[in-house]
Simulated assay, not measured.
Amino acid sequence: MDWPARAASLRQWTSNGVRAPHKPLLFLYALGRYQQDAEQELAFSAVEEDLKRLLAEYGPGNRTTPAYPFHHLVSDGVWEVRTRRGAGSPGSGVRELRESGAAGRLAPELRAALRRDPSLLGRLARTLLDLHFPPSLHQELCEAAGLELEYAETLPVVPGRRSRNQALRELVLTAYEYRCAFCGYDGRIGTIPVGLEAAHVFWWALGGPDEVENALCLCSLHHKLFDKGVLGVSDEGRVMVTQRFVGHSAAAREQVLVLAGRPLLGPQPGMPAIAAAHRAWHTAQVFHGPSRPAVAA
């Protein structure tokens, strides 16, 4: 069984780029718990809050339920569910899972494969991370799921996986004149820019193109906040800050809150701005709106 290929082909509801990371998040969480205790079953009532937090932080902005992946991941052959009545999930409702004493864990065949080849766990996790989330979130997602990975591991070859455009970073930094489009940070050591990154607007992991019109030059902090949905870009090309962000320190005000309503810095004339379709995708699928009102000058 090619388990990484199976992890890469989880059946998910998709439509026009709508994010549906429910199954990958549960799979990552289950791998983390397996790493801690290979024989433990995960009672739905005991892990429900953990899964809620993962979905709230790394899923789309709309409300969702952890019962959905807990039930439906069974169909992908990597997960099993049992109740007090025996094998099989009672359904995708929270009440049914709670009242039946439902508990899940990795499928027996997968557990056996992990015992034979412990490195398989890292390859599975890396496949899920690479296909569903931007690199800026990988390490903290591992921590949230309780996973410890060796990031030097080579990713498995999955049929159909695209190759990244290695020249994109330089193209994007040039387009934005080597400064963060949100705050203007332009740090260098000698002639080498430091702390500046090319941030995809429509995530590459979900099919977004490696093109300047799908990217921003952002400092490391604002790249992370952009991928977490704290920051966004309005139709008018201004920075949006979600009302859900709370920060009382001077640093939070100066680095995040004051950005609300600020126009983007760049791109320079003659270079393509963010395509409207990519901006709309980020607003709908990543940004945790509504946005704060613009800060008075």
Rank of each mutant, 00 (worst) to 15 (best):
residue 59 G to A: 06
residue 20 A to P: 00
residue 226 F to H: 11
residue 209 P to F: 07
residue 63 R to P: 00
residue 252 A to Q: 13
residue 57 E to M: 06
residue 5 A to S: 15
residue 287 F to C: 10
residue 48 E to Y: 00
residue 184 G to Q: 14
residue 203 W to P: 04
residue 265 L to N: 08
residue 123 R to N: 09
residue 143 E to V: 15
residue 243 Q to E: 15
residue 65 T to E: 02
residue 39 E to K: 01
residue 226 F to D: 09
residue 189 I to C: 06
residue 67 A to V: 09
residue 39 E to G: 08
residue 75 S to R: 14
residue 232 G to Y: 04
residue 217 C to Q: 07
residue 17 G to F: 06
residue 274 I to C: 01
residue 287 F to T: 07
residue 13 W to G: 07
residue 3 W to T: 06
residue 219 C to I: 03
residue 177 E to H: 03
residue 269 P to W: 07
residue 58 Y to H: 13
residue 107 A to L: 07
residue 53 R to W: 06
residue 108 P to N: 13
residue 18 V to R: 15
residue 256 V to I: 15
residue 78 V to F: 10
residue 9 S to F: 01
residue 42 L to G: 07
residue 171 L to K: 04
residue 46 A to G: 07
residue 147 L to R: 08
residue 122 G to A: 12
residue 284 A to P: 00
residue 179 R to S: 10
residue 202 F to S: 08
residue 280 A to N: 14
residue 258 V to S: 10
residue 261 G to P: 03
residue 35 Q to P: 03
residue 39 E to F: 03
residue 228 K to F: 08
residue 76 D to Y: 02
residue 65 T to P: 00
residue 296 A to C: 05
residue 227 D to Q: 00
residue 144 A to H: 04
residue 226 F to N: 09
residue 238 R to L: 00
residue 55 L to D: 06
residue 285 Q to I: 02
residue 79 W to H: 03
residue 25 L to N: 02
residue 131 L to M: 13
residue 273 A to S: 15
residue 84 R to A: 15
residue 54 L to I: 02
residue 248 H to D: 13
residue 148 E to C: 11
residue 267 P to C: 01
residue 46 A to Q: 13
residue 110 L to A: 05
residue 125 A to F: 04
residue 283 T to Q: 14
residue 217 C to K: 04
residue 76 D to I: 01
residue 80 E to F: 03
residue 81 V to S: 09
residue 242 T to W: 02
residue 75 S to F: 11
residue 276 A to R: 13
residue 259 L to K: 02
residue 200 H to Q: 06
residue 25 L to H: 00
residue 174 T to N: 10
residue 90 P to E: 08
residue 272 P to Q: 10
residue 194 V to A: 09
residue 259 L to I: 04
residue 258 V to D: 05
residue 163 S to L: 14
residue 134 P to T: 09
residue 276 A to E: 15
residue 88 G to P: 13
residue 85 R to H: 12
residue 136 S to K: 05
residue 186 D to I: 00
residue 40 Q to G: 05
residue 68 Y to T: 15
residue 198 A to C: 14
residue 262 R to V: 08
residue 280 A to L: 15
